[in-house]
């Protein structure tokens, strides 16, 4: 019975194989050409081929070598950090820098093991004020402070 003895190699292989499959799908729309006159797809095709070879080697490695377990994944931090960044992208144009950044920072503070209301609110206020001062006033980034959703421009 085969069992996964090296989970890190095995899952790396699987993830890379999925990625390679995505690129292989993308390749179907591209002209490959010849080695003399390479089309847009030639170089990526070679790379995709190599990626498939490496991922298969890693998957096989996963069965025949011993390795450490992957270990715990901090799902909470992972999801909250990602969500807070996405929130910034989604609300910046509508809410403007002040509120979008405040929401982003506030949400991100929940990624910490222990959430401390005082510290979280303090960090949010300081960071928003500092960002407005440094990035908008200082470096002159073209960001509106309050967006159309809250009556700005």
């Amino acid at each position: 019975m085969l069992s996964i003895r090296n989970p890190k190699d095995f899952f790396t292989g699987i993830l890379l194989l999925v990625t390679a499959a995505l690129f292989a799908y993308g390749l179907t729309e591209l002209q490959i050409g010849t080695a003399y006159r390479m089309g847009p797809g030639y170089f990526p095709m070679v790379l995709t081929g190599l990626l498939i070879v490496f991922s298969v080697v890693l998957i096989i490695n996963g069965f025949i070598t011993d390795g450490e377990a992957i270990g715990e994944i901090p799902w909470r931090a992972l999801i909250i950090i990602t969500a807070s960044i996405v929130l910034y992208g989604a609300t910046l144009k509508g809410l403007g820098l002040v509120l979008a950044l405040a929401l982003t920072v506030l949400l991100s503070t929940f990624a910490a093991e222990k959430w401390d209301a005082k510290a979280a609110i303090g960090v949010t206020i300081v960071l928003v004020a500092a960002s407005v001062a440094i990035f908008v006033q200082g470096l002159g980034l073209p960001l509106s402070l309050f967006g159309p959703w809250v009556g700005g421009y």
Binding site: L101, V105, T124, S131, L141, L143
Partner: peptide, 18 residues
């Protein structure tokens, strides 16, 4: 670190958007 990482998130967000 709990005070620091929100700052990194903020700087990265502002920077990458700019």
């Amino acid at each position: 670190y709990n005070l620091l990482f929100p700052a990194i998130v903020a700087v990265c967000c502002i920077g990458v958007y700019s």
